[in-house]
């Protein structure tokens, strides 16, 4: 991935010491670019992109060791978006970090764009894996945790999973494997927004008791509010102190978080077409000034 030259970085995105206001600004930029990309694409998954934005901001802004966004650094941490349909948010956070141009981030799903509907590692190496088929990214991250440990590297592997994704049997195959092999350099984060494509998890195929399930599989499980940045950072810190098993952070989130008309509404899970009015309303709700709507839609965010 091309690293933006420092002088082209928008001032608001300039690197600075980690702080919660900084993480909050990453999250809001992520949300805005996700909405812009989905509007431009005419399709995409807003609900789960918005619910995961704070988790992504905390991960990239404060937790992951990926100096300069260099996906070739062998000692980097690996982050895999196992819920690949949240790709609009992934491209958004990279743009917020200055690792992808915001103009490109909003070319989501276009024929000539590297920002495919689901992340593809050959297009964008920071994806670490090509995802979009639920369960697989988690397994790939497990392989990365094992692979770096076998090489004696200090790298950690992270996977962000959706809650509906936990209905895939592969997830529990991987959960058993990771615990059996004491992969303490593996962290799974669940974006637990309670809604999947058609309906509530509880009405499709219930997940509860979720933390107990992971604990029974041999994991250290932490439950947090997935929109509370100090809680998220605290959970990551707690996970880093666990040295004998993998950790799962079950982050309770709100689907569509930040856009009131989408919040907790299942229809905004799926790949939807946003009208210009809907996109504008969403961006206004996310704090974009009325005279900047068009700029944000085109990724001109400076």
């Amino acid at each position: 991935m091309t690293l933006l030259a420092a002088e082209t970085l928008p001032e608001t995105l300039a690197p600075h010491a980690v702080s919660f206001p900084y993480l909050a600004s990453l999250a809001v930029t992520t949300r805005r670019l996700a909405i812009a990309g989905i509007f431009n694409a005419g399709s995409g998954h807003p609900g789960g992109s918005l619910s995961s934005a704070d988790l992504l901001a905390a991960l990239y802004g404060a937790e992951l060791y990926i100096p300069g966004g260099d996906a070739t650094n062998p000692v980097r941490d690996r982050f895999v978006l196992s819920k690949g349909h949240a790709a609009p948010a992934l491209y958004g956070i990279w743009a917020a970090m200055g690792w992808l141009s915001p103009e490109e981030a909003v070319t989501l799903r276009h024929r000539d764009s590297r920002c495919q509907g689901h992340p593809h590692v050959l297009d964008l190496p920071l994806s670490e894996a090509s995802t979009g088929s639920l369960g697989q990214g988690f397994s790939v991250a497990i392989g990365m945790a094992l692979g770096t440990r076998m090489k004696g590297l200090s790298s950690r592997a992270y996977a962000l999973l959706g809650d509906g994704e936990l209905q895939e049997g592969e997830v529990w195959e991987g959960a058993m494997f990771a615990a059996h092999h004491d992969l303490s350099n593996l962290l799974a984060v669940i974006d637990y927004n309670k809604l999947q494509s058609d309906d509530l998890n509880a009405n499709i195929c219930g997940l509860e008791p979720l933390a107990s399930k992971w604990r029974a599989f041999g994991w250290h499980a932490i439950e947090i509010d997935g929109h509370d940045l100090p809680e998220i950072i605290g959970a990551f810190a707690a996970a880093s102190r666990v040295t004998d098993r993998p950790t799962v952070v079950i982050a309770h989130t709100v689907k569509g978080k930040g856009v009131p008309y989408m919040e907790n509404e299942a229809p905004w899970h799926g790949s939807v077409k946003l009208t210009r009015d809907q996109a504008s309303e969403a961006l206004l709700a996310l704090g974009v000034a009325a005279d900047r709507l068009e700029d944000w839609i085109h990724g001109r965010i400076a």
Binding site: Q136, V140, G143, G147, M150, L153, G174, F177
Partner: peptide
């Protein structure tokens, strides 16, 4: 657990094995 095995192999390959 062949599904996990197959995808894990991709992660191992990504880390140089």
């Amino acid at each position: 657990a062949e599904q996990n095995m197959m995808a894990m192999a991709a992660g191992l390959a990504a880390t140089g094995h």
